[in-house]
């Protein structure tokens, strides 16, 4: 395998790994109300960069699944769409976090051998 193929393979696996945790990161960030741009910045500041083309469709999907609530409101003299976790979203987030912790500790044990 060439170096560039190695890099491509790693990049694909890395993206796959991050994709799964994006939902968790977005739900956790939306425990407090935010609009898209500040949410994207908050995620990027914590090392979870996400493209707009991924974030906004994801927010719509989570809203249609009842996990998020949204509202257009004026802020800084412009209309912005604010998102926040719904009661169902809070429940699901708790369960996902528990699952995440369980996977994390299992992986640690496996890696340590």
């Amino acid at each position: 395998m060439t170096n560039s193929q190695d890099n491509n393979l790693f990049e694909n696996l890395r993206l796959e790994l991050r994709r799964g945790s994006l939902v968790l990161a977005v739900l956790a960030c939306l425990r407090s109300e935010q609009y898209g741009y500040t949410l994207r910045k908050a995620l990027a500041d914590r090392g979870m960069e996400i493209e707009e083309g991924t974030l906004y469709p994801l927010l719509r999907r989570l809203e249609s699944q009842g996990l998020l609530l949204s509202e257009w409101r004026e802020a800084d003299k412009r209309n912005k769409r604010f998102y926040r976790l719904s009661p169902l979203g809070s429940e699901v987030l708790e369960k996902l976090l528990a699952e995440w912790n369980s996977i994390d500790s299992s992986l640690n044990e496996i890696v340590k051998g």
Binding site: Y35, G36, E52, Y56, R78, R81
Partner: peptide, 17 residues
């Protein structure tokens, strides 16, 4: 069905940037 809503949100995001 979602055109106006998506455009508005994207416009707001780009404008903020």
């Amino acid at each position: 069905g979602q055109r106006e809503d998506i455009l508005r949100e994207l416009s707001e995001d780009i404008q903020s940037e």
